[in-house]
Protein backbone atom coordinates (compact mmCIF):
# COMPACT_ATOMS: atom_id res chain seq x y z
CA UNK A 1 0.00 0.00 0.00
CA UNK A 2 3.00 2.32 0.51
CA UNK A 3 3.45 3.31 -3.17
CA UNK A 4 -0.26 4.13 -3.42
CA UNK A 5 0.05 6.28 -0.31
CA UNK A 6 2.97 8.09 -1.94
CA UNK A 7 0.97 8.72 -5.10
CA UNK A 8 -1.99 9.99 -3.10
CA UNK A 9 0.29 12.31 -1.16
CA UNK A 10 2.00 13.57 -4.31
CA UNK A 11 -1.30 14.23 -6.06
CA UNK A 12 -2.75 16.03 -3.05
CA UNK A 13 0.38 18.15 -2.84
CA UNK A 14 0.24 18.95 -6.55
CA UNK A 15 -3.38 20.02 -6.30
CA UNK A 16 -2.62 22.21 -3.28
CA UNK A 17 0.29 23.89 -5.08
CA UNK A 18 -1.78 24.56 -8.19
CA UNK A 19 -4.67 25.88 -6.11
CA UNK A 20 -2.27 28.01 -4.08
CA UNK A 21 -0.75 29.51 -7.21
CA UNK A 22 -4.15 30.35 -8.58
CA UNK A 23 -5.25 32.29 -5.54
CA UNK A 24 -2.17 33.49 -3.72
CA UNK A 25 -0.88 36.95 -4.58
CA UNK A 26 2.30 38.34 -3.13
CA UNK A 27 1.40 41.18 -0.81
CA UNK A 28 1.26 44.70 -2.17
CA UNK A 29 2.58 43.73 -5.58
CA UNK A 30 0.19 44.65 -8.34
CA UNK A 31 0.07 43.47 -11.94
CA UNK A 32 0.33 46.18 -14.57
CA UNK A 33 -0.75 45.42 -18.13
CA UNK A 34 1.06 47.96 -20.27
CA UNK A 35 1.65 48.77 -23.92
CA UNK A 36 4.84 47.26 -25.36
CA UNK A 37 6.27 50.74 -25.93
CA UNK A 38 6.36 51.22 -22.13
CA UNK A 39 8.62 48.17 -21.64
CA UNK A 40 11.70 50.17 -20.69
CA UNK A 41 10.26 53.13 -18.83
CA UNK A 42 7.63 51.58 -16.51
CA UNK A 43 10.00 49.37 -14.50
CA UNK A 44 12.15 52.50 -14.01
CA UNK A 45 9.17 54.36 -12.54
CA UNK A 46 8.32 51.51 -10.18
CA UNK A 47 10.57 48.44 -10.19
CA UNK A 48 8.58 46.56 -7.53
CA UNK A 49 5.47 45.72 -9.60
CA UNK A 50 4.79 42.85 -11.97
CA UNK A 51 4.51 43.89 -15.60
CA UNK A 52 2.94 42.30 -18.61
CA UNK A 53 3.87 44.12 -21.80
CA UNK A 54 2.24 43.52 -25.16
CA UNK A 55 0.03 44.98 -27.83
CA UNK A 56 -2.54 47.14 -25.99
CA UNK A 57 -5.31 45.44 -27.98
CA UNK A 58 -4.18 41.97 -26.85
CA UNK A 59 -3.95 43.15 -23.25
CA UNK A 60 -7.42 44.74 -23.42
CA UNK A 61 -8.84 41.49 -24.82
CA UNK A 62 -7.19 39.55 -22.02
CA UNK A 63 -8.67 41.91 -19.43
CA UNK A 64 -12.09 41.46 -21.06
CA UNK A 65 -11.61 37.70 -20.70
CA UNK A 66 -10.89 38.16 -16.99
CA UNK A 67 -7.10 38.39 -16.82
CA UNK A 68 -5.84 39.34 -13.33
CA UNK A 69 -4.63 42.86 -14.14
CA UNK A 70 -4.77 45.72 -11.63
CA UNK A 71 -3.77 48.57 -13.93
CA UNK A 72 -4.11 48.93 -17.70
CA UNK A 73 -1.82 51.38 -19.53
CA UNK A 74 -2.68 51.58 -23.21
CA UNK A 75 -0.98 53.29 -26.15
CA UNK A 76 -4.28 54.92 -27.04
CA UNK A 77 -7.40 56.23 -25.33
CA UNK A 78 -9.83 54.16 -27.37
CA UNK A 79 -9.12 50.78 -25.75
CA UNK A 80 -9.30 51.87 -22.07
CA UNK A 81 -12.36 53.98 -22.94
CA UNK A 82 -14.00 50.87 -24.38
CA UNK A 83 -13.19 48.93 -21.20
CA UNK A 84 -14.54 51.83 -19.14
CA UNK A 85 -17.82 51.84 -21.07
CA UNK A 86 -18.17 48.12 -20.36
CA UNK A 87 -17.53 48.78 -16.67
CA UNK A 88 -14.26 46.87 -16.75
CA UNK A 89 -12.01 49.72 -15.66
CA UNK A 90 -12.05 53.23 -14.18
CA UNK A 91 -12.32 56.34 -16.35
CA UNK A 92 -8.99 56.50 -18.20
CA UNK A 93 -6.71 59.53 -17.94
CA UNK A 94 -4.03 60.61 -20.40
CA UNK A 95 -0.60 60.06 -18.84
CA UNK A 96 1.74 60.68 -21.75
CA UNK A 97 1.98 61.32 -25.49
CA UNK A 98 4.22 60.05 -28.24
CA UNK A 99 5.10 60.46 -31.91
CA UNK A 100 5.80 57.97 -34.67
CA UNK A 101 8.92 57.63 -36.80
CA UNK A 102 10.12 55.34 -39.57
CA UNK A 103 13.10 53.18 -38.68
CA UNK A 104 15.44 51.54 -41.19
CA UNK A 105 18.35 49.20 -40.45
CA UNK A 106 21.74 50.97 -40.11
CA UNK A 107 22.88 49.31 -43.36
CA UNK A 108 19.72 50.64 -45.05
CA UNK A 109 19.63 48.02 -47.85
CA UNK A 110 16.60 49.62 -49.55
CA UNK A 111 18.24 53.07 -49.45
CA UNK A 112 15.31 54.79 -47.81
CA UNK A 113 15.92 58.49 -47.12
CA UNK A 114 12.40 59.78 -46.68
CA UNK A 115 8.96 58.46 -45.98
CA UNK A 116 8.15 58.90 -49.70
CA UNK A 117 10.81 56.25 -50.58
CA UNK A 118 8.55 53.67 -48.93
CA UNK A 119 6.52 53.59 -52.14
CA UNK A 120 9.47 52.09 -54.09
CA UNK A 121 8.53 48.63 -55.32
CA UNK A 122 10.17 45.78 -53.44
CA UNK A 123 10.66 47.63 -50.15
CA UNK A 124 10.01 45.21 -47.29
CA UNK A 125 7.92 47.26 -44.89
CA UNK A 126 6.79 45.92 -41.54
CA UNK A 127 3.96 47.54 -39.63
CA UNK A 128 1.80 46.54 -36.67
CA UNK A 129 -1.61 44.94 -37.11
CA UNK A 130 -4.47 47.40 -37.56
CA UNK A 131 -5.93 46.48 -34.14
CA UNK A 132 -2.67 47.43 -32.40
CA UNK A 133 -2.64 51.17 -31.54
CA UNK A 134 0.65 51.80 -33.37
CA UNK A 135 -0.76 49.97 -36.38
CA UNK A 136 -3.80 52.23 -36.58
CA UNK A 137 -1.59 55.33 -36.07
CA UNK A 138 0.54 54.10 -38.99
CA UNK A 139 -2.52 53.83 -41.20
CA UNK A 140 -3.55 57.38 -40.15
CA UNK A 141 -0.14 58.80 -41.12
CA UNK A 142 -0.28 57.11 -44.52
CA UNK A 143 -3.79 58.42 -45.02
CA UNK A 144 -2.77 61.94 -43.94
CA UNK A 145 0.09 61.84 -46.47
CA UNK A 146 -2.10 60.28 -49.14
CA UNK A 147 0.30 57.32 -49.39
CA UNK A 148 -2.00 54.51 -48.23
CA UNK A 149 -2.28 52.53 -51.45
CA UNK A 150 1.28 52.87 -52.67
CA UNK A 151 2.91 52.13 -49.31
CA UNK A 152 0.60 49.42 -48.00
CA UNK A 153 1.32 47.19 -51.00
CA UNK A 154 4.91 46.96 -49.69
CA UNK A 155 3.85 45.61 -46.29
CA UNK A 156 5.32 42.13 -45.79
CA UNK A 157 4.17 41.51 -42.23
CA UNK A 158 1.70 42.85 -39.68
CA UNK A 159 3.21 42.32 -36.27
CA UNK A 160 1.44 41.91 -32.95
CA UNK A 161 3.09 44.82 -31.14
CA UNK A 162 5.46 47.70 -31.77
CA UNK A 163 8.50 45.93 -30.34
CA UNK A 164 8.08 43.09 -32.85
CA UNK A 165 8.17 45.68 -35.66
CA UNK A 166 11.28 47.20 -34.13
CA UNK A 167 12.97 43.79 -33.76
CA UNK A 168 12.40 42.84 -37.41
CA UNK A 169 13.99 46.13 -38.54
CA UNK A 170 16.83 46.04 -35.99
CA UNK A 171 17.64 42.48 -37.12
CA UNK A 172 17.90 43.75 -40.68
CA UNK A 173 15.21 41.41 -41.97
CA UNK A 174 12.83 44.23 -42.86
CA UNK A 175 13.79 47.35 -44.82
CA UNK A 176 11.65 49.72 -42.78
CA UNK A 177 9.02 49.88 -40.06
CA UNK A 178 6.78 52.37 -38.29
CA UNK A 179 7.43 52.62 -34.54
CA UNK A 180 7.19 55.22 -31.78
CA UNK A 181 10.12 57.62 -31.54
CA UNK A 182 10.66 56.25 -28.01
CA UNK A 183 11.14 52.70 -29.32
CA UNK A 184 13.68 53.83 -31.90
CA UNK A 185 15.81 55.25 -29.05
CA UNK A 186 16.12 51.82 -27.39
CA UNK A 187 18.10 50.34 -30.31
CA UNK A 188 19.72 53.53 -31.60
CA UNK A 189 22.91 51.69 -32.62
CA UNK A 190 21.04 49.40 -34.98
CA UNK A 191 18.53 51.61 -36.72
CA UNK A 192 18.40 54.99 -38.41
CA UNK A 193 15.40 57.20 -37.71
CA UNK A 194 13.48 58.97 -40.46
CA UNK A 195 11.10 61.59 -39.14
CA UNK A 196 7.44 61.72 -40.00
CA UNK A 197 6.37 65.32 -40.71
CA UNK A 198 4.57 66.94 -37.80
CA UNK A 199 1.51 67.76 -39.91
CA UNK A 200 0.99 64.06 -40.67
CA UNK A 201 1.35 62.91 -37.05
CA UNK A 202 -1.76 61.40 -35.47
CA UNK A 203 -2.78 62.28 -31.93
CA UNK A 204 -0.99 59.65 -29.85
CA UNK A 205 -2.30 59.76 -26.30
CA UNK A 206 -1.63 57.03 -23.76
CA UNK A 207 -4.46 56.22 -21.36
CA UNK A 208 -4.20 54.57 -17.93
CA UNK A 209 -6.98 53.13 -15.75
CA UNK A 210 -7.55 50.89 -12.72
CA UNK A 211 -9.14 47.56 -13.57
CA UNK A 212 -12.54 47.15 -11.90
CA UNK A 213 -11.88 43.56 -10.81
CA UNK A 214 -8.54 44.46 -9.24
CA UNK A 215 -8.07 42.86 -5.83
CA UNK A 216 -5.91 45.74 -4.69
CA UNK A 217 -7.42 48.99 -5.89
CA UNK A 218 -5.57 51.15 -3.36
CA UNK A 219 -2.18 50.03 -4.63
CA UNK A 220 -3.38 50.23 -8.23
CA UNK A 221 -4.47 53.85 -7.62
CA UNK A 222 -1.12 54.54 -5.99
CA UNK A 223 0.65 53.23 -9.09
CA UNK A 224 -1.40 55.47 -11.39
CA UNK A 225 -0.57 58.43 -9.14
CA UNK A 226 3.10 57.53 -9.31
CA UNK A 227 3.02 57.56 -13.11
CA UNK A 228 1.27 60.94 -13.10
CA UNK A 229 3.55 62.38 -10.38
CA UNK A 230 6.35 64.83 -11.17
CA UNK A 231 8.97 62.11 -10.75
CA UNK A 232 7.06 59.69 -12.93
CA UNK A 233 6.54 62.26 -15.66
CA UNK A 234 10.21 63.28 -15.50
CA UNK A 235 11.13 59.66 -16.04
CA UNK A 236 8.78 59.46 -19.05
CA UNK A 237 10.40 62.58 -20.54
CA UNK A 238 13.83 61.07 -19.98
CA UNK A 239 12.79 58.13 -22.17
CA UNK A 240 11.56 60.46 -24.90
CA UNK A 241 7.84 60.48 -24.15
CA UNK A 242 5.98 63.79 -24.30
CA UNK A 243 4.20 65.43 -21.36
CA UNK A 244 0.58 64.39 -20.90
CA UNK A 245 -0.63 67.88 -21.72
CA UNK A 246 0.66 69.92 -24.62
CA UNK A 247 2.54 73.02 -23.52
CA UNK A 248 0.60 76.19 -24.10
CA UNK A 249 2.46 78.49 -26.37
Amino acid sequence: MRPTACIVLALTLAICVVAGQASARPNAQITVYAAASLTDVFPKIDPSQRYQFGGSNTLAAQITQGAPADVFASANMALPTQLFSKGLCSKPVVFTRNTLVVVVPKANPAKIRSIYNLTKPGVKLVIAGSGVPVGSYTLQILKNMNLSGSVLKNVVSRETDVREVLAKVALGEADAGFVYSTDAKTVSGKVTVIKVPAWAQPKVQYGICVVTKSGDKADAQAFVKKVLSKAGQARMLQYGFLPAKKKKR
Binding site: G129, S157, R158, K168
Partner: peptide, 9 residues
Protein backbone atom coordinates in the same frame (compact mmCIF):
# COMPACT_ATOMS: atom_id res chain seq x y z
CA UNK B 1 10.84 33.79 -39.40
CA UNK B 2 7.94 34.50 -41.74
CA UNK B 3 5.99 37.25 -40.01
CA UNK B 4 2.24 37.44 -40.34
CA UNK B 5 0.39 38.81 -43.36
CA UNK B 6 -3.09 37.81 -44.44
CA UNK B 7 -3.14 35.64 -47.57
CA UNK B 8 0.65 35.33 -47.62
CA UNK B 9 2.10 34.10 -44.34
Amino acid sequence: FAGSLQRVT
